[in-house]
């Protein structure tokens, strides 16, 4: 078994500056691709237990293989168990935890603070990451998660650098920042608009599964991207979308690195392998160039990134339409 507390993350470093580049593993091919492209670590969803469709999650035997790939590349694998289980599924969670520990995952991504406490009590050497879905908003809250066992938290996309610094210092917790992700007008773990619109209750091997609820392990039907009207005494505005924007960060990355951000995360388990490979490769080169030279040609990377963004937007649009159709039809296979 791996003792992660003594295992060094394979981060890139310059002098005393270290940063980990984390890529998505929506399938085994993607796991291999993100390491070949230069990621230090990968995260994979555990079938039925993560904040994505089961299409992009891995079962235990696939996860075992993913761990092998990660370790062959001297990298690490984080298992995402960041959907909220049904009350009373703690027993199933403990069994899953045992399996994940036995296949030597290096860290576990959790959303629920109670489950973090259970994990920390049973496997104190297993690194715990507080998911973006935990929506940790301030330093006092971060400290409570630290006390429950989390050693790293994913910062909300709206958090400023100053807030990140304060949280890191006060709570003595590592910070992960999303550099490719989406941001919307709600905090990520505090949105139930999708499941308010449509929800299908299902089970996988006795595990509850809520299609339409990202918090509970299903997909988000992206209702914010419908065409909306603002209606009061009259129709004040129409044909607008509620904010839900993708971003690819670039200019901010040197500042984040200099300010001690511990991990830069690329979201995108649902995207194609070639696209994710390109994104990881670009960020790998960018980080390496910055760390080796102390500066980077931003304009050159902006051009490359805009081409990637075009491909990404096209894939995202297809997925959004698929999800909206699924919401109308209440399909379970999405």
């Amino acid at each position: 078994m791996v003792s992660t507390s003594t295992k060094q993350v394979n981060s890139t470093f310059r002098g005393d500056i270290m940063v980990e580049l984390l890529g998505p593993g929506g399938n085994l091919e993607m796991v291999e691709a993100v390491f070949e492209a230069g990621a230090d670590s990968v995260y994979c969803g555990v079938k039925g237990w993560s904040r994505r469709s089961k299409k992009y999650e891995l079962d235990i035997s696939q996860l075992r293989e993913a761990v092998r790939i990660a370790h062959n590349h001297s990298g690490q694998l984080r298992a995402a168990v960041n959907a909220m289980p049904k009350a009373g599924e703690e027993g199933m969670f403990k069994n899953l935890l045992e399996e994940l520990y036995s296949i030597e995952v290096d860290a576990i991504i959790l959303n629920d603070i109670g489950l973090m406490k259970i994990t920390n009590e049973r496997y104190p050497d297993l690194k715990i990451v507080a998911s973006i879905g935990s929506s940790i908003l301030n330093k006092e809250e971060a400290k409570l998660y630290r006390e429950a066992g989390a050693s790293l938290l994913v910062a909300d996309c709206k958090m400023s650098l100053e807030e990140i610094r304060e949280i890191k210092e006060y709570a003595k917790i590592g910070i992960e920042v999303l550099i490719h992700a989406n941001t919307d007008f709600t905090y990520l773990g505090r949105c139930w608009i999708s499941s308010y619109k449509a929800l299908k209750f299902d089970e996988i091997d006795g595990k509850a599964y809520y299609i339409g609820s990202p918090n509970r392990g299903g997909v988000c039907f992206r209702p914010c991207l419908l065409r909306w009207s603002l209606v009061g005494e009259k129709i004040y505005a129409k044909d607008f979308q509620l904010p839900n924007d993708m971003f690819l960060m670039l200019d901010e990355i040197p500042v984040l690195i200099d300010n001690g951000v511990d991990c830069l995360k690329i979201q995108g388990r649902e995207y194609s392998v070639p696209l994710i490979r390109d994104i990881v490769k670009l960020y790998r080169n960018f980080i390496d160039e910055y760390l080796s030279k102390g500066s980077v040609n931003l304009e050159e990377y902006r051009v490359k990134l805009s081409l990637i963004a075009e491909k990404r937007d096209s894939e995202r649009l297809r997925r959004t339409l698929e999800l909206m159709k699924a919401a109308w039809e209440e399909k379970s296979e999405v």
Binding site: M84, P85, A87, G88, E89, E90, D112, I113, G114, L115, K117, I118, S135, A148, G189, R190, N215, R216
Partner: peptide, 13 residues
């Protein structure tokens, strides 16, 4: 309700 208490373990904590 916005504290997001979903599980028995968080309620216990």
């Amino acid at each position: 309700g916005l504290a997001n208490v979903y599980t028995v373990s968080t309620a216990e904590l």
